[in-house]
């Protein structure tokens, strides 16, 4: 499928020129967060993008620090949502087109949910909230999906330390206890 008319349609929808990257099945289009839902809806209704392949988030805090020619996130926006769509021909099982939409949000913004367009987004949006703390609008019921309700913070944010544990039971910091020696690679009985 030729993506050029689709891209110009979405540009018209967003009312601004959009930057597209990549080609073919790797095409990525950056849309403003306020228009992300409209763009997804439009792609589904008009161009047969019938499968939401993925919806995820990337935290760009500190991105490109210490390297040259890597541009940090635009306008100080911290998170990038990635909507990955696919137009699948259900008869032949072949892919007509793949398209990813990027949408930059900051920690405070609440992008519109696409749960009603793609039920698959229900869990994905919960995961994005759980892991990154990006909340979607019109979802009063949003709750954690991978972590437990008692957990505070959002573990995939760059400022969440990988070893910061919040156990429900047991010691808060288990690394201080006596450990098995790595050399002890045989089954071992403890008296």
């Amino acid at each position: 499928m030729d993506l050029a008319p689709i891209l110009s349609d979405i540009e018209a929808l967003c009312g601004a020129p959009l930057s597209a990257r990549g080609a073919g099945s790797d095409t990525v289009l950056t849309v403003p967060p306020a228009k992300a839902r409209a763009a997804v809806e439009f792609l589904k209704a008009k161009h047969g993008f019938n499968v939401l392949v993925d919806l995820t988030c990337v935290d760009y805090q500190g991105f490109g620090k210490g390297t040259q020619n890597v541009s940090p996130a635009p306008e100080g926006r911290r998170f990038k949502l990635v909507y990955r769509l696919m137009a699948l021909d259900a008869g032949t099982g072949l892919i007509k087109a793949r398209l990813a939409l990027d949408s930059w949000v900051d920690g405070e913004s609440v992008p519109a949910t696409i749960k009603d367009l793609f039920p698959a987004a229900d869990w994905l949006e919960r995961e994005v909230w759980d892991m990154f703390g990006v909340r979607f609008a019109d979802r009063p019921d949003v709750k954690r999906i991978l972590m437990y309700p008692e957990f505070t913070g959002h573990p995939l944010r760059k400022d969440y330390p990988i070893k910061k544990r919040q156990p429900l039971i047991g010691p808060a910091d288990a690394s201080a206890r006596e450990r098995l020696s790595p050399a002890d690679l045989r089954p071992r009985i403890v008296e």
């Binding site: 972590m147 330390p161 990988i162 544990r165 156990p167 010691p171 288990a174 206890r177």
Partner: peptide, 10 residues
């Protein structure tokens, strides 16, 4: 990491 119990003997 943050998610895993560091040995069930804890």
């Amino acid at each position: 990491n943050y998610a895993t119990v560091q040995g069930i003997d804890t």
